[in-house]
């Protein structure tokens, strides 16, 4: 059971400002049914440009509903410029804190607020859309968003990033990418604890190298793919070219190339040799998959 504060529970059981404002000045919609939570925020301004009324509708767990409720309370009476300064930390603090794994709810609140403000500033024309490169395909999280949660919450581990914006919480294929973004932003801070150099093998015979590649796939790569109903098979190794085939969910996945590049190659380079590169065996990918290899 989650450790929720009394304030959070109170807002969950008695949420304020539920609904949608008719003819709103700003509308922000974020999240989706598939992701497990979604929030629609609407607001109206008074003649002095202050937020007169704000309402929400939320699909999600107790903390998603409570953060939406306090968000509407927090922004009422603020000017647009003031509201734009609200961070996800402010929302979480207002509730007396959130469990770490639920911090993404506060981020969703701030995202909806931003989307609504953007919608207002573009005269109701612009709807929220993902900006920048998508890093986590499972939950549709962009590089910009990841950078932001790292900066605003002073995050230093990939696990924290997952708690704050879900990125990396699905197949895990983007964890390497998140780590790179983290290094870029928090460079100095992370360097305080110098990461151990990858313990790579020295000179290997071909057989040793192939065995090590197989072992790395078994231990480091397959579990992450399995978590998503997929699988991977090592087909062949030609010099530094590693040929693999994806099975199950991964085989049909439109993002197979992305997962492969990111996860398989990164792991093989980390654990086996820097020179390795990965190619997908196209012939076996075309075969219908039956889990019986």
């Amino acid at each position: 059971m989650w450790e929720y504060t009394d304030k959070l529970k109170e807002h969950f059981f008695n949420p304020r400002n539920v609904g949608e404002i008719e003819n709103p000045d700003g509308v922000g919609e974020v999240g989706s049914l598939a992701c497990g939570d979604a929030l629609k925020l609407t607001f109206k301004l008074d003649e002095n440009g202050r937020i007169k009324d704000a309402k929400f509708k939320t699909f999600g767990c107790a903390s998603a509903i409570a953060t939406s409720s306090v968000l509407t309370e927090m922004i009422k009476g603020k000017t647009i410029d003031e509201a734009a300064k609200v961070t996800n930390r402010d929302i979480a603090n207002y509730l007396g804190g959130l469990p770490e794994q639920k911090m993404h709810c506060s981020v969703m609140g701030r995202e909806a607020l931003e989307a609504a403000i953007e919608n207002y500033r573009t005269g109701g024309k612009k709807k929220h859309e993902l900006q920048g490169r998508v890093v986590c395909n499972c939950f549709g999280v962009t590089e910009n968003e990841i950078e932001r949660v790292i900066r605003e919450n002073n995050l230093t581990t990939v696990e924290e990033v997952t708690n704050y914006c879900k990125a990396g919480g699905g197949c895990g294929g983007c964890k390497g990418e998140i780590e790179k973004i983290m290094e870029k932003i928090q460079g100095d801070k992370i360097k305080e604890i110098p990461p151990a150099a990858p313990r790579r093998a020295g000179k290997m015979t071909n057989i040793q190298k192939i065995q090590l590649i197989q072992q790395t796939i078994n231990e480091q790569i397959r579990p992450a793919l399995r978590a998503h109903g997929g699988n991977i098979e090592l087909i062949d190794v030609e010099g530094d070219k590693v040929i693999v085939a994806f099975r199950g969910m991964c085989a049909q996945c439109m993002l197979a190339e992305y997962t492969m590049k990111d996860l398989v190659e990164a792991k093989l380079r980390e654990f086996v040799s820097h020179q390795l590169f990965v190619e997908e065996d196209k012939d076996s990918a075309k075969e219908p998959h039956n889990h019986r290899e």
Binding site: K9, F12, F13, L33, D37, F59, G60, C61, A62, A64
Partner: peptide, 14 residues
């Protein structure tokens, strides 16, 4: 449909 399980559980818990 359209609602989330944990929220239902907390309401039931009450």
């Amino acid at each position: 449909e359209y609602i989330e399980g944990e929220a239902i559980l907390l309401m039931l818990d009450k």
